[in-house]
Design a protein around this nucleic acid. Structure first.
Length: 481
RNA sequence: CGGGGCGUGGCGCAGUGGUAGCGCACCUGCUUUGGGAGCAGGGGGUCGCUGGUUCGAGUCCAGUCGCCCCGACCA
């Protein structure tokens, strides 16, 4: 096998492996515009499957989709001080249109809180108008210094949900509900176990009361934030003058949330599951779930006819809902086809050849672990849903095991340093939610960040690893993308 | 914005001042086909751009543009 046909090994250079996979598997490519990417059909199909699953959850939890414009007048953007300051360096501006300079420049949305609040200020008047629970699927632009395909691009695709509630507690519940949707999507569909928690003060969304997120471990031990949910309190509704009359005819500002998940999750799938042969896609979101490779010899007409007959049978018996592809390409040897579909992460491969068919069998190979079985053709098609489900579980288990093996509890800065000595891990340690303690912890290990203050590990009063006082949280510490 | 590197067919590269080449990919045909095939033939580049030196510039000089890598922001 020629070296140049292979992708860079993960152990050699994980970043290059990632870029190689994205481009060679034809998920995406760089565009002529710096920092932007073209999502190719295979990558977009994957994103569409993720979208569909999440969109169903968004609808199930009582939200409606709508659409706000791409351009936001500068004056709209500027009403919430923390928000403006937080996003200012990343905003792209349109200053010219119709052949002349604009009177007011227009921001290309970095997120839509401001325009949404401006509109809902006109639409919310009564307690009967609440709650408002809406969502939009769109693109946003945030000028970035360093970009990476899917993980961080200047323009990216996402959904942003926005809600308004009468009570602080209702908003808080909404924040949790939607974070749990993200957890469900990531674990049940993408087969990536996650850790939920709250962002530190320094990492929360600009303008939010607090931010919660889910954090996933990539196969190199680095963390990737894969969905965030914000409690915005009344910060924006006050700034934008959203007010309603409650049952006692008192004027009130509603409590607000927003939450988002981006096409970065495609990057999470790639980095959480992929190996040196390429992608490994969870069946539930794989654009192609089963690929059939017929093997025919030009000097064996009878054999070729048998193979074609068996192939056609698989195709016609394939259950509805199973995404099957038959690879009938001519002039390509089987080995090349195997490599082609392995690179693209197709969960199951069925090899249909004359040798096996002599005994009424075909060979089924599972991408995640290479498990190979010679099974009767008879009845195989009907079993595909179960085989795919088993593959989905195997992928999840593999990721779960890695997360467990590479997670460690530490109770001092020395232990923290030791934990990262060999390889990146997820370290959990008691910590205060203060800038001082965060700075101290980050300084202990190169490129370390506080991912979240874990919501599954309530404080037991253990001393903070930075300052030694009883800590309010257990923090998840990791290097992150 | 600071430090480093690179611009030559789609991709990766070679090219000593003398009229542009290799590998991969692509197209055609034949043979092959149970792990990335072989042979034969074929198409494709005003060498990033501008100016200069020279009889002559991919090559030397100046400028300019763009890109990549490393440091300060982020889903």
């Amino acid at each position: 096998m020629a070296d140049e046909k292979r992708i860079t090994a993960q152990s050699e250079d994980f970043d290059r492996w990632y870029t190689d996979v994205v481009r060679r598997a034809e998920l995406a490519d760089y565009s002529p515009v710096r920092g932007c990417m073209v999502i190719r059909p295979y990558g977009y199909a994957l994103w569409e499957n993720i979208q569909r699953a999440l969109d169903d959850m968004i609808k199930r939890t009582g939200h409606e989709n709508m659409y706000f414009p791409l351009f936001i007048p500068e004056s709209y953007l500027q009403k919430e001080a923390d928000h403006v300051e937080g996003f200012d360096p990343q905003v792209a501006w349109v200053t010219r249109g119709g052949g002349k300079d604009l009177e007011e420049r227009l921001a290309v949305r970095p997120t839509s809180e401001t325009i949404i609040c401006s509109m809902y200020a006109d639409w919310i008047h009564s307690w009967r108008d609440l709650p408002v629970k809406i969502n939009q699927w769109c693109n946003v632009v945030r000028w970035e210094h360093r970009t990476r395909l899917f993980l961080r691009t200047t323009e990216f695709l996402w959904q942003e949900g926005h809600t308004f509630h009468q009570l602080d507690s209702e908003a808080a519940k909404e924040v949790d509900t939607m974070l749990d949707c993200y957890r469900e999507l990531t674990e049940d569909w993408l087969a990536i176990p996650v850790i939920k928690g709250r962002k530190t003060e320094s990492e929360k969304f600009p303008g939010a009361e607090y931010t919660v997120s889910i954090e996933a471990m990539m196969s190199d031990g680095w963390a990737l934030q894969s969905g965030t949910s914000h409690h915005l309190g009344q910060n924006f509704t006050r700034a934008y003058g959203i007010a309603y009359s409650d049952r006692d005819n008192q004027r009130q500002h509603p409590f607000q949330t927003s939450w988002g998940l981006s096409a970065r999750t495609v990057g999470a799938v790639i980095m959480a599951h992929g190996d040196d042969m390429g992608l490994i896609l969870p069946p539930k979101v794989a654009p192609i779930q089963v690929v059939v490779v017929p093997i025919t010899r030009s000097n064996d007409e009878a054999g070729a006819a048998t193979v074609e007959e068996a192939t056609a049978r698989l195709e016609s018996e394939c259950p509805a809902g199973v995404r099957m592809r038959i690879d009938r390409r001519e002039g390509m040897r089987p080995g090349e086809k195997y490599a082609h579909w392995e690179l693209r992460g197709v969960p199951l491969r069925i090899i249909v050849g004359a040798k096996d068919l002599a005994g009424g069998n075909v060979t089924v190979v599972r991408r995640v672990d290479g498990a190979q079985d010679t099974v009767p053709l008879d009845g195989l098609a009907a079993q595909l849903p179960q085989l795919l489900e088993a593959a989905q579980q195997a992928i999840l288990e593999r990721a779960r095991k890695r997360l467990e093996e590479r997670s460690v509890d530490v109770s001092s800065l020395d232990e923290l340093v030791a934990a990262f000595a060999e390889r990146p891990v997820f370290a959990t340690a008691p910590m205060c939610n203060t800038a001082e303690c965060e700075t101290a912890v980050k300084a202990a290990v190169h490129a370390l960040t506080v991912r979240v203050l874990r919501s599954d590990r309530p404080s037991d009063g253990a001393p903070c690893i930075a300052c030694g006082k009883p800590a309010d949280f257990y923090a998840l510490l990791a290097r992150s993308y």
